[in-house]
Design a protein around this nucleic acid. Structure first.
Lengths: 176, 176
DNA sequence: TTTCGCATGTAAGCTGTTACATGATTCC
DNA sequence: GGAATCATGTAACAGCTTACATGCGAAA
């Protein structure tokens, strides 16, 4: 089973919203998908060039507007088709690594103050994240985009998980 | 901020249970940490050799027992010290990628039957996983190891998350 | 004028997986 | 005898991050 490049689909997907530059794509992801999908510029630019060669996107060089040069990419009909094909394919669910759990699993070798500290700190970070989710929720609710219902589903997922994680922290902190 | 190799600590941590061969380490992880940490043989063997060179483990070649050759690795005092240092260091919490959420985020470009299918299938897989967790829970409860309380904490985490994920699936399946 | 954000890209390097190679032993 | 499992390893390469290089325009 070969691994296939999902970055290309993430980029194509973002481009269904509107034509964008590589820089815009990065920013867009930082504002919307950052809790379950991130890309670095070192990935985006080379893959954008590849997508262009494969004619899945077109590029208009907007140097005409008097301001600085920006490469604006737009998804093509072929690109949209390729995206839809991928969307219909079965999803892989690899178990992500969790460093906190690994440390806790070996917790016997550590002082319990240390184990407690790790969980406590995690708890604090989760609470901050939850606030950001609540803010994002407000923003999307007023978004008239047709995509909004789907965005809400992914947000809902994050919230549910966060609450479960917070509950777990509370229980663990009582134990150690 | 450089990334540091966590595989070495996973291996050292497993070796605190008892001396083991590379093969055993793999099996041990498959049976205990597989829901939050996995390693492939292609990682384990080279890193074991490296740990040996750094004197964090020792190796006794048990060809004497008449059976086939097995390299049994044992953690040294230095190795244990290195493990403990790592255990005390702050934990990084990178957001793992989630392909299902990415597809759902782009769900507007897909038929809703497809979106529904993905979530439904995920739901089924989660239910199977939950059964495995319940089995693992029973096994650990009867384990007299001093590590057992910590193992239970990681298991608890998995259960909490699973329930949250299942709930989310139920809600989403009503919507699409 | 100098700093910051915009904007695009490249190169190096690490992590980790997959696939392959090899051969012994045990069980049916 | 043949299959499955035990057991150790290597090579190729995909994927991704980090750091770096470059330069424009706007604002302070």
């Amino acid at each position: 089973m070969k691994r296939l490049n999902k970055t290309r689909y993430a980029i194509l997907g973002i481009l269904t919203q509107r034509p964008m530059s590589g820089y815009d794509i990065k920013k867009e992801m930082d504002e919307s998908t950052q809790y379950f999908w991130q890309e670095s510029p070192g990935q985006i630019y080379p893959i954008l060039a590849k997508l262009l060669r494969e004619k899945l996107v077109t590029c208009t060089n907007s140097s005409t507007s008097g301001s600085r040069v920006r490469n604006i990419y737009k998804i093509t009909a072929t690109g949209l088709k390729e995206l839809k094909t991928w969307l219909a394919q079965d999803v892989m669910h690899p178990t992500p690594r969790n460093e906190l759990l690994l440390k806790l699993f070996f917790g016997k070798n550590s002082a319990d103050e240390i184990n407690h500290y790790h969980v406590k700190k995690y708890h604090q970070q989760l609470k901050n994240k939850l606030k950001q989710y609540e803010q994002a929720y407000k923003n999307i609710k007023h978004d008239p985009s047709e995509h909004a219902p789907y965005w809400l589903m992914t947000l809902k997922y994050g919230e549910k998980i966060l609450h479960a994680q917070l509950e777990w922290c509370d229980e663990i902190l009582k134990r150690i």
